[in-house]
Design a protein around this nucleic acid. Structure first.
Length: 257
DNA sequence: ATGGCAATGTTTCATTGA
């Protein structure tokens, strides 16, 4: 089973690129973030033609998440948002696909330490970690994929000195990320030897991508039973190239049967 | 190849992202 996550930065703008990527990479499940589409405008038919069923939780202009799963797979128990956390922003959706619980997250950006948005980010992460603890208890086969907007450690930052204490790299954010792991989840990327300076996001400005000045902020976390089946995790840097890319690249894990 | 922000709506600038 192949599972991907990708912040598409507007599904409207990225639909053709995404469909092409699905054709080329053939994931069984894909988690999307920043669809920026209200549910009535979600292009479900286009994905149906491409062989995927879709569930989504969106809003106009901002945020928005979705899970795609191959038509042949059983998709059940769809849940929108974080249980017990009242949130106007559409940042979470979960579903069970072929017996594996898939949670798709778009963690708040946080703007800058000390701001209201930063406080919201940390609060959101606290609530979500508690939710994941319950999810793992009832779903031993758990995959949590998305844009976490946190670079877990300095290996995940092109210039750690430049980013020290900045948004995505501050210690409270890294603590929040470790709290996700403390639930009993593994960062799939670090289950394997990886090339240094592998990132999942590059600023559109200042030639950041050609200079590989990026951050690794998109992650796929796995419960122990799923981690034991995981045979690879890679970031598809090629998807950041060319005309009209998202500023994020997809992360992909492969699981043995 | 990989190129000096992009997407959206409030629209000809402001807001947000990371």
């Amino acid at each position: 089973m192949k599972i991907a996550t990708w912040n598409v930065n507007s599904l409207n703008m990225r639909l053709e690129r995404l469909l092409e990527w699905l054709r080329a990479n053939q994931p069984d499940v894909a988690c999307l973030q920043e669809t920026k589409l209200e549910d009535a405008k979600f292009p479900a038919a286009a994905f149906g033609e491409a062989g995927y069923q879709v569930v989504f939780n969106g809003q106009k202009s901002y945020n928005g998440v979705a899970i795609l799963a191959r038509n042949k797979l059983a998709l059940t128990d769809v849940r929108h948002g974080i249980a017990g956390y009242d949130d106007e922003q559409k940042r979470a959706i979960a579903a069970t696909v072929d017996g594996t619980r898939i949670v798709c997250l778009y963690v708040p950006n946080g703007q800058a330490p000390g701001t209201d948005k930063y406080a919201y980010k940390l609060d959101w992460c606290r609530a979500t970690a508690a939710h994941l603890r319950e999810a793992l208890a009832s779903h031993p086969q758990l995959v949590v994929a998305g844009d976490f907007n946190v670079a877990p450690d300095d290996r995940d930052v092109h210039d750690p000195q430049l980013w020290a204490g900045q948004i995505h790299c501050s210690e409270p954010e890294r603590e929040a990320f470790r709290a996700f792991l403390a639930v009993g989840l593994a960062d799939s990327f670090r289950l394997f030897d990886q090339p240094p300076n592998t990132f999942s996001w590059w600023d559109y400005r200042m030639l950041a991508f050609p200079k590989n000045r990026g951050l690794r902020i998109d992650h796929i976390l796995l419960s122990p039973t799923v981690a034991s089946r995981c045979v690879s995790c890679r970031i598809d840097r090629n998807a950041r190239k060319g005309q009209k890319p998202s500023d994020h690249a997809p992360v992909v894990v492969e699981l043995a049967e």
